[in-house]
Amino acid sequence: METPPELARGRYDLVSATIRAILEQIQAVWHTLSAESIEEALQGEAGAAIAAAALSGQFSVADAASAYIAAQMAAQGASALSDAAVIASAFAGIAPGGGRLESLLYLPAIGVRRRVAAGLPPEEAMIGGLVDMSMYTATAIADAARSADQVAMATTRSCVAYVRVVQLPACSRCIVLAGQIYPHSEGFLRHPRCDCQTLPLAEKDWPDVPTPEELFAQLDKEQQQRVFTVDGARAIRAGADIGQVVNARRGMDTVHIYGRRLQVTHEGATRRSVYGRSRSRAGDEMRQFAGSRFGQATSRRYYRSARSPRLMPEEIFRLADGNRDDELRLLRRNGYIT
Score class of each variant (00 low, 15 high):
T338A: 15
Q58T: 08
T229N: 14
K204A: 08
R173T: 01
D205Q: 09
Q225E: 15
L330N: 03
L199P: 00
V151C: 10
P169V: 10
L105N: 09
P122Q: 12
N323P: 09
A161S: 11
I236K: 03
D325T: 04
G322H: 02
M126H: 07
R250G: 12
F228M: 07
F91S: 09
L23P: 05
D13H: 07
L328R: 10
S278I: 00
S273G: 09
A88S: 11
M252K: 03
D241Q: 06
M1K: 13
E267P: 01
A52S: 12
R277D: 04
I87E: 09
D284R: 11
I316K: 01
F91K: 12
L177N: 13
E102Q: 12
G98M: 10
V112F: 07
A74V: 04
A74Y: 09
D253L: 10
Y162D: 05
A80R: 11
R157Y: 06
P192T: 11
Y106S: 07
E40L: 15
A320Q: 06
I242M: 13
L311Q: 02
M126F: 08
L201R: 03
T211E: 07
A125T: 01
I26G: 08
A78V: 01
D195V: 00
S299A: 13
R304A: 15
D149Q: 11
P183F: 00
T3Y: 12
K204H: 03
Y336N: 09
A65P: 04
M135T: 13
A235N: 09
F59I: 14
P108T: 01
K221V: 15
F59R: 14
V255G: 10
A140L: 08
A62I: 06
R329N: 12
D205C: 01
A145K: 06
I181Q: 04
G47L: 05
G295Q: 05
A297Y: 01
S158R: 06
H31N: 15
G276Q: 04
E123R: 13
Y136C: 11
M312T: 10
V245T: 02
R226M: 10
G179K: 04
V61A: 14
S308L: 05
S147F: 10
S147G: 13
P183M: 01
A62W: 02
P313G: 08
Y303D: 13
C194A: 11
G10R: 12
I94D: 06
N323K: 09
S134P: 06
S82L: 09
S56F: 02
Y303C: 08
Q288D: 03
E124L: 13
P122M: 14
V176N: 10
P121N: 14
V131E: 15
D143Q: 15
D143W: 07
Q218G: 05
Y182A: 08
A35G: 08
A90M: 08
P309I: 03
R261V: 11
T137P: 05
N334H: 15
Q43E: 12
L101T: 12
V61T: 05
T298A: 07
I141V: 10
I127P: 01
A49Q: 14
A52W: 00
L120T: 02
I69C: 03
S103W: 03
V227F: 02
A202R: 03
